[in-house]
Design a protein around this nucleic acid. Sequence first.
DNA 1: TGTAATAGTTGTATCTTTGTAACCATTATG
DNA 2: CATAATGGTTACAAAGATACAACTATTACA
Lengths: 162, 162
Amino acid sequence: MTEIKQTTIETVVDNLMYLQPLLSKSFSKQMRTKTNLNPGSLFIMGVLSVHKTLSMSDIGRKLSMPKPHVTVLIDKLIEEEMVERIADLSDRRIVNIHITEKGITQFQNIKQEISEEMRQQLQQLTKEQLTTLVTATQQVRELLIISFGKPSGCPNTKNQAS
Amino acid sequence: MTEIKQTTIETVVDNLMYLQPLLSKSFSKQMRTKTNLNPGSLFIMGVLSVHKTLSMSDIGRKLSMPKPHVTVLIDKLIEEEMVERIADLSDRRIVNIHITEKGITQFQNIKQEISEEMRQQLQQLTKEQLTTLVTATQQVRELLIISFGKPSGCPNTKNQAS
DNA sequence: TGTAATAGTTGTATCTTTGTAACCATTATG
DNA sequence: CATAATGGTTACAAAGATACAACTATTACA
């Protein structure tokens, strides 16, 4: 019934929607058990491991995470010495978050632990399939960054004082 | 410092970890605003739109969602007539969940709304990039299903009565 | 038949995330 | 200079998800 002719974009949406649960299955689970960090903190460590230093708002934008939430998570990460607050010289409102050496190695360790666990699962793939997966994930990552890596704002930036 | 030579699997993990926030940015947000369904229910509709009928445990396994949580979400979906409970004939313990016609069309509509929103974002890509994205997401989807689409159990299957 | 295992439900406590609102400090703008 | 806008923080409420524990019903097994 109902002929379903999908557009290109609908196919992408379809695929991406199916990816979400698969991803959470593949390691959100691992995260919860293997680390003392909650998912949100892990994501922050993820972007910081790439960008090294980001302002609070940058983090919120990149992860579309409400600013109050970012504050709370950063507080915890600072307690564990994974990151540090650094005042911005040019704009004193801005608080820059910098990943520490400890944070870098700790995050590296976490990723390796997860990789270890995933190795078992991924070994079901042939050498060619694994190569394809590397390329494909890389492409998806890059193309989604182009499409969605933009500012686009994060919550609690409301100040529509009437 | 610390020479980082990534293995193939570590690269995959790296990419997948970066994907998670991008995905939630790209439509977890949309979901929250565009539908009256919460993310969990959407995921259930996602697997049901593919498999049409699944037992409660199947759903829990596919989404690695605790069984009690599945029960709650299914209750809501039934209220909205998106799915229906069907007793299993061969094993009377099993409750099969079947997506309704309404559920199919509703879910289709939701996907189209999300697609509409995403179109704007994805139009920043060239025709070639978009083609690449379709192929890449398809590949990632298929390969992750091979790797992680297995049973693997879901919580609350504990019955180690001592 | 008795016991263990499986499928599912109910209930509760806790954690995580989101959404607001109010607030301070600083910068930008008229 | 007055005011608006931005960057961050604090606090609180509500939604969503996870983890347990206990329980029923049914099936598998010895």
